[in-house]
Design a protein around this nucleic acid. Sequence first.
DNA 1: TCGGCACTTCGTCCTAGGACCATAGAGGGG
DNA 2: CCCCTCTATGGTCCTAGGACGAAGTGCCGA
Lengths: 206, 206
Amino acid sequence: MIRVLIADDHPVVRQGLRTFLDLHDDITVVGEAGDGAQAVELVAELAPDVLLLDLKMPVLDGLGALERLSGGPTRVVVLTSVSDPADVGPAMRAGAAGFLYKDVDPPALVQAVRAVHGGQVLLAPEAAEAMLATAADVAAPAPVPLTEREREVLALIAAGRSNREIARSLAVAEKTVKTHVSNVLMKLGVQDRTQAALYAVRHGLA
Amino acid sequence: MIRVLIADDHPVVRQGLRTFLDLHDDITVVGEAGDGAQAVELVAELAPDVLLLDLKMPVLDGLGALERLSGGPTRVVVLTSVSDPADVGPAMRAGAAGFLYKDVDPPALVQAVRAVHGGQVLLAPEAAEAMLATAADVAAPAPVPLTEREREVLALIAAGRSNREIARSLAVAEKTVKTHVSNVLMKLGVQDRTQAALYAVRHGLA
DNA sequence: TCGGCACTTCGTCCTAGGACCATAGAGGGG
DNA sequence: CCCCTCTATGGTCCTAGGACGAAGTGCCGA
């Protein structure tokens, strides 16, 4: 039996969810909370398996409640009406095990409760997309572009040349080469010429 | 009835999954593929509702298959044995609707198939964590540290000073100030002094 | 043999000049 | 009055010297 707590500021929504969920043999709604603070209290008191949590609530909002509950044994499914993609990341980071929108198909909600109770993480497609969107920026964190000269220097570093040798190759002062090397290291976010050389090889710049 | 196709290079695994899944009234396994290419073919031929896809497969690996299948009506659940967090992001971006590990509790797998068929996205906890981890870097993309002098210059920019005025304040050449400004702009990843000033204000550096 | 010193190499930060390019504003000519 | 050119300001890239600090290398003397 999965013990569920419902937190939502609208009594009608709570009643609807309770009625629907209680129809299922393996689910029982053990309580309702009208705001985040109450939700936190009731989780402590009732230790439900799953908390269905609205994000927009008075006193303490869903995210705040989520943070206070993280680490506990209760699995939290965020169930929100507004679909702001920016909500998804913080909620998941705060320990949510599910993120659904209220327009969810009711049977799907039941499956979600079961899946989350079973330890999985479940997202509405829009929520998954929102997470990917933020993660996408990560993949390409604007790799600071190297200038022409810096690429030349990097190539020579990757060829194992010393600063003095590079200076001779490029017909500039060794000091200038050092400056370029410094800039390359900074731009690549790397600590020394060895790592820069590896970067060059790995990215086919050598 | 949910029609499932299984793609895995181990016949034993396929057999095990098939036997177990077929026990459920609402699920039927309509085919098996031993490699990614075959999986793509069978999806086209059988149009299953859900594809259980191993990532590590001969000929065409899971990720490749996933890419070829993206956009189609078949929902793909990645079911992998090795747990490399780096696999999660690409797979989800390539259109996976689920990401589970083979040590999954069998009933949970069934729930996953149902949830995914219902349009939700379902992740193993480790996979969700992996996605968050990549998304976390985004939030803090290693803000390149400014040097002491650069911070001084930035503060003066934020105070609305021109390069010439800053040069006077710091008792250096205007050229030097320009160099510092350039470096600050680059480090902040910003296009001009105006944005730098805003950054400074927003981050309390002014 | 070993500890320490000296030297080189690397790397950082600040400084700054020269050559350019873009943009915006100001003033003059049609 | 409107356009056009000219200049100031901002910004980029390359160059490079001075002052330092961290590491590695090798040699020398105890």
